[in-house]
Design a binder for these strands. Structure first.
Lengths: 351, 351
DNA sequence: ATACTAAACGCAACCGATTGCGTCGAAAAT
DNA sequence: ATTTTCGACGCAATCGGTTGCGTTTAGTAT
């Protein structure tokens, strides 16, 4: 065990007969140090294997080159992709990324927000948990002018950055697609309505029905708390047991949509002919289930990248935190077999 | 924007007429401070909303309460679950988790290892990238007695902690299962052989064949670089085009296994009757594909938890880094329809 | 009552980088 | 030749805890 001492700016100072201040400035390319000295110092620094002690700098600046991420769960495809985008962007800029998951517990979210704050993160990226109806625990960041970015699951009102997809339009388009396929009674798996994502998707669904002069039937709208596979099964069964079962289903996520496919198939219902289904997220399983699930895809990685950029920009430009900037990204409807009646019909016709 | 000043131990010192040293010791429950003062100081600290500046402590101790994770990609179910386990364990102990992904690039892995080192992580958890054949860039951690834990994809020789699953036995069991189902010509999708996980799974496969007196046919062993969906499709086609195609397939991951299912089905091959398939990982898609994919499941979250624990233990017990401790966890064969000929037969018989 | 011990707490250096302000010398301006 | 200006660099405080060692005081032994 050979504990090699780290080289500090003081070592460089001695070696080069400069003061630590000059070393520090040279390493940071400060303009008040001549080109010649700067070059020389940087050269020797590299030679001696100098590596800046970020902790010392962080303490002095009261800010660590770190971006915090606070999400409900890491191991979901969509979230993992967001994190991936954040990490990539952050690392390129020399920032670390620290993560914390609340497991959808409100208390954890508060505790983790505190922990992030105490870690002096440069900025924080948040996707709200299921239980969160109040976001006051994030106010401390605004107060200290620490850039705060909400992504995907965001609070309705908050002076902060928000990076979201156009959930309303996505919901509208998904529903319209089903209508275009000839569906007349379209059901909807609606998630927890206090969350913007589910709320807006439902609004889009409702408006699409109305603007196509289709009746909105309350019994076709199934509220699912967590949008889990099990809930999806139950919801599907409930729908199929109706006197007038639906001929279309727009599910607010893929998990429930897939469970609907499997449940309906088990009952001998033909998809998409008798029941056309479209989900949301384009999870990997969507393209694997049979028939393959139509869905709405997010630019998840890009959302992560943008979120990180907002923080880096804010930090470098030293902006005031009291802004409210929303970045809304487009979604894409991906049509696969689970809703594609046209192709099916064509296939039937030509065969 | 009201930048509230943070309360420091100096503020507490003034308030309570103690020296900063005493405050510091009291807050850390140091034994040389009386119970009475300790209680009092902690009480006032809470009252004034004191929050320790971890950066200052980290600088002084030259160690941040942080666990680093270095993996190839975050957005894979298995990896995300490991991270989840690490994060949960770390946070409970008051540690932060910083992540970095190499995207399977050797250069990135080296750079990220450096970055982690420079961040003064308490310990580092690593799952190697595809390109990594040499692990010398992790030696700096051992030299500085920073606990290093390799998880899942580990180097063969390295004085460090290693948390792995029993890949050999898993490969053996998976193959044996196919043999039990009556398969005689069992193919194998083998991953990059310089990685322990794929190497050992293949060894298990080979030994299972031999011990059952089944011929090892080279043409049935398909080497796939990345085990991607596309590679799996190609591999499956190659197998099916053989003069004597296989009647069983053990794929070293689920992605390729699923592609095999879809490819074979498209060719009209009956699964599992004509081709029984088993994968590896128990990704979400495994239970969704049709027929549902038999597979081998990992205790991924637990692996993350154990990895984090190793670091916390090592750090608190101040152990010497020059140890080599391997934790090997058991896997579980999950039998679903893609390989279950017995049930299928039974079903056929009874129907 | 005296010597000794240990508990309880303070002093001050330290971790390594950052930065406002001051200094010095040389070039430029008058 | 004298003053002004400015580029280039150093001084020293600072960020907020931590810790080895020294000091004080109360308690114990003799």
């Amino acid at each position: 065990m050979k504990k090699k001492k780290e080289v500090t700016i003081y070592d460089l100072a001695k070696e080069l007969k400069f003061s630590p201040s000059t070393i520090s400035r040279a390493l940071n390319n400060h303009k008040s140090i001549s080109q010649k000295t700067t070059k020389e110092i940087q050269k020797i620094a590299k030679q001696l294997g100098y590596r800046p002690n970020t902790l010392a700098a962080s303490l002095r600046n009261n800010k660590s080159k770190t971006i915090g991420i606070l999400i409900a769960r890491i191991n979901r495809p969509f979230i993992a992709s967001i994190i991936s985008g954040v990490e990539e962007t952050a690392r390129k800029a020399g920032y670390n990324v620290i993560i914390s998951q609340s497991n959808d517990k409100y208390e954890n979210e508060i505790a983790n927000a505190k922990a992030m704050y105490d870690s002096r993160v440069t900025g924080l990226i948040v996707s709200l948990g299921m239980e969160t109806r109040d976001s006051q625990h994030f106010k401390q960041f605004i107060d200290q002018n620490i850039p705060l970015v909400f992504v995907d699951r965001v609070p309705v009102e908050f002076n902060s950055y928000r990076v979201i997809i156009d959930n309303y339009t996505a919901g509208y388009k998904a529903t319209q697609h089903l209508i275009d396929q000839g569906c007349k009674r379209i059901a909807h798996f609606a998630g927890a309505q206090h969350l913007n994502v589910y709320n807006l998707r439902k609004k889009g669904y409702l408006d699409a029905l109305r603007e196509n002069n289709l009746e909105v039937a309350e019994e076709l709208i199934i509220d699912l708390d967590t949008m889990s596979f099990e809930e999806g099964c139950d919801g599907t069964k409930a729908l199929l047991n109706l006197p007038q079962p639906p001929d279309g289903l727009f599910s607010s996520n893929d998990t429930a949509a897939v469970s609907a496919i499997l449940t309906a198939k088990a009952r001998g219902i033909k998809i998409p002919e008798e029941l056309a289904i479209i989900g949301f997220n384009d999870d990997p399983m969507a393209s694997v289930v049979e028939p393959a699930l139509s869905t709405v895809s997010h630019p998840a990685v890009k959302m992560g990248e943008i979120s990180a950029q907002r923080i880096l920009e804010h930090s470098s430009k030293k902006l005031d935190s009291n802004i409210s900037e929303i970045t809304m990204l487009d979604t894409e409807i991906i049509i696969r077999s689970s809703s594609n009646r046209i192709n099916t019909t064509r296939l039937l016709e030509t065969s």
